[in-house]
Nucleic acid binder design. Structure first.
Lengths: 233, 233
DNA sequence: GTCTATAGACGGATAGAC
DNA sequence: GTCTATCCGTCTATAGAC
């Protein structure tokens, strides 16, 4: 499709634009945004199914409804695209992570975090698989994210958890072992979806069943760390 | 190396063989066994690092110290080799799984199973990664193992767990959710090794630290399902 | 910004001499 | 049973017309 045609398809609507941004350039930016978004979504699903090496740019492009050459126009290399998928996933993970607040009530904080992580596994299982796959294969393409972004987050939560233990609101657990258990258990429902389907039947993953399982997982983890609601003053 | 040479290298030692098995054939069988074993070990490590699609038969052969053509002599296709690795892994998993017995004491049974699974993650992390990778990518090459071997095992354990719940020795947990939590948490220490190293430091995975972590995990899971030692009669 | 055609490297698998 | 040479397909990435 030519730029001229796009112009006629999308007439006004740029009334609020800055004067120096011409309508044509704006339209091109929209095309770029849309195509990049499609490619990123397609890439997430292909990388989840095949892994980085197994995924082909041809399949990613095809699933996004574009010729392969266009993929390389937007993302110069397969690795560039992969990195963008990982960074995007981290942002989502990070938003979920911040629901684990430092409130005085560990039952609410941990329970809320587990529910959010379960919801994320439900909402974006493909992304979780890409993430898991990358780590299993050595995390070579995201070590910087782990060290510069995930580790600082974890260190602050370790302080919070140790604080709860000191106050007697939690059993004396190893905070890292607790966090690993939460991650492993919640992400299992995304990453091991195929196994769960084979063992428990597809019904196990229905909306209703997943909500019940979520509460089961919350209960187990709250018990696992011996969380107590703080006494009212 | 020629068969004649091998004959001279290995002189007697076949005294106990059946008469109809000639020494030369026996020696060939030993070569086959040794080469297959090397290839299987090498394949496990390459599949763990790169996944099925990412792994190349050239790299597997090289790591086993053989030319690529020899790999195809022992294993006609890459998929054949992969299947053998998966079947071998299942046998190991199955041995570990049977430490989860139906004893009257859930603390001993569950605790013992968790320790065995942690030991397996420690002893054979590459295998765990291959397994995880296969499931993440849809378990297409091992659905039969899941359905015919793992599921029957799981179903018997569900009965055992429900029995404990009925006796009041366990909180009323969903047995499947409990098993998934045990698998996810214990296998996390193998599959997410790279993340653990990046977040907790390599020291976290020392012999000593791992033993302590194992006990932490056992304690958390025992608490998670509210296991109680049965009263003495 | 789009798309056809293709370069150039590498993959799995095999032929055939030894 | 071993190994070199090679077939043929697919892959990433790019050139260049539109």
């Amino acid at each position: 499709m030519r730029d001229e045609e796009l112009q006629t398809v999308l007439p006004a609507a740029e009334a609020n634009d800055k004067a120096e941004v011409r309508p044509l350039r704006r339209r091109k930016a929209q095309i770029r945004e849309s195509n990049e978004a499609h490619l990123l979504a397609s890439a997430e699903s292909v990388f989840a199914e095949k892994g980085f090496d197994g995924a082909s740019t041809a399949m990613i492009a095809e699933r996004a409804g574009l010729p392969k050459a266009n993929l390389h126009y937007y993302f110069p290399t397969k690795l560039t695209l992969y990195r963008r998928v990982l960074e995007d996933l981290f942002e989502d993970w990070h938003k979920a992570a911040n629901t684990f607040d430092a409130s005085a009530d560990p039952v609410a904080a941990i329970g809320g975090y587990v529910r959010t992580k379960m919801a994320l596994s439900r909402r974006r299982p493909l992304g979780s698989k890409v993430w898991a796959n990358e780590i299993t294969h050595g995390a070579t393409h995201m070590r910087d994210i782990l060290v510069e972004r995930v580790k600082p987050w974890m260190d602050t939560r370790i302080v919070v958890i140790n604080g709860w233990i000191t106050q007697g609101l939690l059993a004396p657990v190893d905070p890292q072992a607790l966090l690993f258990m939460i991650w492993a258990t919640t992400q299992h429902y995304a990453d091991f979806e195929a196994q769960i389907k084979a063992l428990a039947g597809p019904r196990k993953l229905s909306q209703q069943a997943f909500a019940e399982t979520t509460e089961q997982v919350v209960d187990m983890i709250i018990r696992a760390c011996g969380a107590r609601t703080p006494p009212r003053d």
